[in-house]
Simulated scan of single mutants.
Amino acid sequence: MEKKKADGFIIPPNYFYGRTFEIEVKAPEVLIPPLNIPAVAVPETVVETPKTALPKVEMPVGSDIKVSALSLSSIRAKRELEQTTKATVKEAAQLPTEPFSETDMMLQWNKYAQRLSDKGHKIMESLMLINDPKLNGATIIHELPNEGSKIDFESEKHELLGYLRGKLHNHDIMIEIVVNETMDTRKAFTTQDKFNRLNEINPNLDLLRRTFDLDI
């Protein structure tokens, strides 16, 4: 008797109970063609540091500040200090200190007083002509009657001192004011009085006036 073939076979679910299955799934291989990208040179970025000028250091002559020899600014400071010292020494050496007499001093003293008169500075002019100054070495000693007149004279003394140093070619000249309340003042107010005082200092002035027939 011929067996009939089953049309289909169904596995019951209890067949799979208690069994483990491993399923290996392989990912499909994907072939990526190589990309021929040319190499691009990246330029190097150069950062320039801004140059800062070093400040000049002015140091007075005779300064005892210690300067480091390892610092650039210290080297510059040393050079500037040496140049300043040389310039100062050179300038001091070139200042004239020519000798002069009391007569020379009095002539320039009265010339300056006349300049003050021409400019209308009557107070300083009268203080200069109130008495004849005396010369002690390079120091001009001028007597005034009180402290008030001394203060007025001192306030304008520096211009007179510069004038005398330049005209007499001696930068050692100093002016010393002495207050003498008992002094006998002699004031020259007229042109003749001024000429007489100058003639007392230098009698050749009268000879010069008579020779050239000059007016006073």
Rank of each mutant, 00 (worst) to 15 (best):
K5V: 10
D7R: 07
P12F: 07
N14L: 10
N14E: 15
Y15K: 05
Y15N: 10
Y17T: 12
G18W: 00
R19Q: 09
E24S: 14
K26V: 14
E29G: 08
L31W: 05
I32F: 14
V40Y: 02
P43V: 01
T52E: 13
V57H: 00
V57T: 12
S68G: 07
A69M: 11
L70D: 14
L70R: 14
L72K: 15
K78Y: 04
E80V: 05
E80R: 15
L81H: 09
Q83V: 13
T88P: 01
K90I: 10
A92R: 14
S101N: 04
S101I: 04
T103F: 02
M105L: 14
Q108A: 11
N110G: 05
K111H: 11
K111D: 11
S117I: 13
H121W: 03
E125N: 10
S126E: 11
M128H: 06
M128Y: 06
I130E: 02
P133M: 00
K134D: 04
L135Q: 05
L135F: 01
G137D: 07
H142S: 04
P145Y: 00
G148S: 09
F153V: 01
E154T: 11
S155W: 00
H158A: 10
H158L: 09
H158M: 10
H158Q: 09
L160Y: 02
Y163W: 08
R165H: 03
L168C: 01
H169K: 15
E176V: 03
I177S: 10
A188I: 11
T190G: 03
T190E: 06
D193W: 12
N196C: 02
N196V: 06
R210S: 12
F212S: 08
F212A: 11
I216N: 11
